[in-house]
């Protein structure tokens, strides 16, 4: 008997009604399973529906057709096993770093003192010791992402949803954060759904790469990444297998990126 997948999409179709009134299909009949402990990267052209799919896995959005199963149960509200690192800044701007990181434990009724202690530990872990009392606007973009990482990992979720978390960072900061993410993940082996439009990032981090087609998103293919772990995101790029994979997936992805580009620039 097969183990129950952490997340399973079953024929998920998502539509939006545009302001003009016409119905716009963003994802069509998406089906796939993510086994527990898998680091899955999702790539696809910009605007194809990656964030939308993640929102469906988070339980923030309900598909009119199909369903999302989490550990075998159909989602009927917020996905309680998951936390979400959003593409945009999502920290509470009116709370300090410490208060932001404490939110998860507090919402789960942990006593204040314990939550604070736990939060301090996590702030130190993401390298922000000494910044506890700052407000988000007093931090750099990279620091805000670290806070967001601490905020979502502190509650020890079984599933992590991450939407281009490092997309807005410079190359160096990004590599550091990617390595830190890998380090954290290595310890706990949580299930990760990591959206990115950067194929190199996807291969460097993930066990599997799912390629989505240009909107409406369909599942174009899922590729196994059998690169050794633990990895360093800079070194792994030199691995010949990395290049082989890159070429293979890119052939698939390029078509979709081009289609999506052509659709927008007729």
């Amino acid at each position: 008997m097969r183990a129950i997948p952490a997340v399973a999409f079953e024929g998920v179709t998502i539509r939006f009604r545009a302001p003009s009134g016409e119905v716009h299909t963003v994802a069509r009949d998406i089906s796939f399973d993510i086994a527990e402990g898998t680091f899955l990267a999702i790539v696809g052209p910009s605007g194809c529906g990656k964030s939308t799919l993640l929102n469906a896995a988070a339980g923030l959005l309900f598909p009119p057709a199909g369903r999302v199963l989490v550990f075998g149960e159909a989602l009927a509200g917020i996905n309680k096993h998951a936390t979400y690192l959003f593409q945009q800044d999502a920290l509470l701007p009116w709370r300090s770093v410490l208060d932001n990181v404490m939110l998860g434990p507090l919402f789960r009724s942990m006593p204040r003192a314990a939550a604070m202690e736990e939060a301090r530990r996590w702030i130190e872990r993401v390298g922000l010791k000494g910044f506890e009392d700052r407000f988000p606007h007093q931090l750099s973009g990279g620091m805000r992402k670290r806070v967001a990482v601490a905020q979502s990992w502190i509650v020890n979720p079984r599933i992590l949803l991450m939407d281009e978390p490092f997309g807005a960072l410079d190359v160096q900061t990004r590599q550091i954060m990617e390595n830190e993410l890998l380090g954290l993940w290595q310890e706990t082996r949580k299930t990760v759904l990591f959206v990115t439009h950067d194929l190199e990032e996807a291969i460097a981090l993930a066990d599997k790469v799912a390629v989505l087609s240009a909107g409406p998103a369909r599942l174009k293919g899922v590729y196994e990444v059998d690169l050794p772990r633990p990895r360093d995101v800079a070194e792994i790029r030199l691995n010949p297998e990395f290049n082989r994979l890159y070429t293979r997936i890119w052939a698939d992805l390029r078509e979709e990126v081009k289609r999506s580009y052509d659709a927008r620039h007729p």
């Binding site: 309680k80 959003f86 998860g104």
Partner: peptide, 12 residues
């Protein structure tokens, strides 16, 4: 986004 973040952290 901020609202959804708080909801994901399971705010009542």
């Amino acid at each position: 986004v901020i609202l959804n973040n708080a909801r994901m952290l399971q705010a009542t």
